[in-house]
Amino acid sequence: MTKGLSKINLTALTFGFAFLYLPIVLLVIYSFNASRLVTVWGGFSTKWYVELWNNQQLIDAALRSVQVGLVSATVATVLGTMAAIVLVRLGRFPGRTLFSGMIYAPLVMPDIITGLSMLLLFVAMDLSRGMFTLMLAHITFSMCYVAIVVQSRLLTFDRSLEEAALDLGCPPAKTFFVVTLPIILPAVISGWMLAFSLSIDDAVISQFATGPGASTLPIEIFSAVRRGVSPQMNAVCTILIAIVTSGVIIASIATKRAEVARMREERAAMAGR
């Protein structure tokens, strides 16, 4: 429709987005509150951020989270991309139903069950719980999200380019890296980002998968939040929100630019013919 939005539609959007954003905005504002009380505005202050800087336990947990996030997002992206190719390209093979089941099930599986089952596996395998088991757990649940993201890109993929490469004698593996991967790269990158953010946000599964002395930032936040609201937690949350938001916005602008550039190239190539 070109005539813009009716009043009802506009109201629905305004209220919807206010509901989605207001709590986060308030949280951010009150992280700069000089007063310890949540409802009393005591003037602008950055003292809670200074306090954070001196909280070694929290900083260690944050560094651990980043490490686990980087490793598990990278491995999950490789495995998830492979899984997406299996789902879209390999057609029927024995055990396909089980495979796609195992890809979709983690998306709706309650965290608490995933966490419990992971912990019991690690106990059964006699693995001592820590960073390594955390990574194994995070890779497993986030690779399924990567698979779904990459899969939806592969479904709208123009096969003729790949076929042309293969017809010209390019080996399949090389075709994948030279032709397919560059085209699906934006989806692979957003898959990686999704995996990273899932890993760095997860509190419940991590609580089961980790051991003593290897707590992550969400685990620390969770135990602090159970004790109630504190300005210091507001500050931690604000930093995380800032990182995630700017990451997502930069990535989406970059993908859009890349897409525009690619379309221009394609058009130029067509004109050249």
Partner: peptide
């Protein structure tokens, strides 16, 4: 994008934001 963006921040943080609002002494 505006609908997806809040989903990228942790569930824990989004739930925490409501504690400060709904608390007896909350906003």
């Amino acid at each position: 994008m505006a609908v997806i963006l809040p989903f990228w921040t942790s569930l824990l943080i989004r739930v925490y934001a409501w504690i400060g609002i709904l608390d007896r002494e909350g906003l």
